[in-house]
């Protein structure tokens, strides 16, 4: 449980963090809550030469609503996010999702930005991120850029974060006011990670038909995905048990199911169907 020796420094501002990254010559790694990085370092699975602590950059702890988007500072902890009045009011799915991450101690340290930047295939947050059409706000040597979640996380633990850059925040789409949302998770009994996590937002219009639907699934494979076939089946239709059952059968369509010690791909495919059906039923029926 003891990491390899490393040096430690901390940044007071984003610019300073970028500068420290540049100076580290590829050896530097950012640390905020450390709940993704330290467990790997303790097993010596990663050995950065220098840790650049960004946890004191206060400007990255803010939450603000900008039009139809909610901008969450990268350093906001999961616990803070789950309780934040703006988040609870406008993107309850995000609050519900982060409330189910790990455990209280982890939620007190782990950050939204760290979670996304780590791109753990087994993480909870990516399900909500794909559903809420998240954009990752990145600051680098050449200024700020915004990357869609799909183009940011491209594989397990793999992101397109440019060199010497820092995730400063995540922007989430605020779903229409009439929608309801849910995050339904099957906890791995040991790790607490989702064996499957289904995030869904759905709304029914004045005509009684589904006019807004987003479904995201995490935990089952290398990367979280939007269950678009499910969405397409439901959109414009009147919600019913039969319809949801029919749609949920397509839940695994866009994803690649992974196998591990706990669950096979075939079983995960089944979980996709069942959990999607249950998640959708809870907000549509």
């Amino acid at each position: 449980m003891i990491p390899v020796k490393f040096d430690y420094t901390h940044a007071e501002t984003v610019d300073e963090a970028i500068k420290l990254l540049q100076e580290s010559g590829g050896e530097g790694k950012l640390i905020a809550g450390g709940h993704s990085l330290l467990p790997l370092m303790k097993f010596r699975l990663t050995e950065p030469g220098v840790l650049i602590d960004i946890s004191r950059i206060d400007q990255l702890k803010e939450v603000k609503k900008e039009g139809d988007r909610m901008i969450v500072g990268a350093l906001m902890t999961h616990n803070e996010a789950s309780k934040h009045p703006l988040i609870k009011e406008h993107v309850p799915l995000l609050a519900d999702t982060v409330r189910q991450i790990g455990d209280l101690q982890v939620r007190n340290r782990g950050t939204i930005g760290g979670n996304i930047a780590h791109a753990d295939p087994a993480a909870d947050l990516p399900a909500a991120a794909v559903v809420l059409e998240a954009e990752v706000i990145v600051q680098g040597e050449d200024g700020e850029e915004t990357m869609g979640i799909d183009s940011f996380i491209i594989g397990p633990l793999i992101t397109m974060l440019p060199e010497n850059s820092i995730v400063t925040g995540i922007s989430f789409a605020i779903p229409p006011a009439h929608t309801k949302s849910v995050y339904l998770k099957y906890f791995h009994p040991a790790s607490g990670y989702p064996v499957i996590g289904v995030a869904a937002v759905a709304g029914v219009g004045a005509d009684g038909n589904i006019d807004y639907i987003r479904v995201g699934i995490t935990g089952v494979g290398d990367i979280a995905f939007r269950a678009e076939s499910v969405e397409q089946t439901l959109l414009g239709q009147k919600p019913s048990k039969a319809l949801i059952q029919q749609a949920a059968k397509l839940a695994a369509e866009e994803g690649e199911m992974g196998s591990d010690l706990f669950a096979s791909a075939e079983y995960r495919e089944n979980l996709c169907r069942v959990y999607t059906e249950r998640a959708l039923s809870s907000i549509l029926l």
């Binding site: 449980m1 450390g34 709940h35 330290l38 467990p39 602590d53 946890s55 209280l104 101690q105 982890v106």
Partner: peptide
């Protein structure tokens, strides 16, 4: 509440 095994002293 935090797990002190998953935090560095310097942090």
């Amino acid at each position: 509440a935090v797990k002190s095994c998953t935090m560095l002293a310097v942090q």
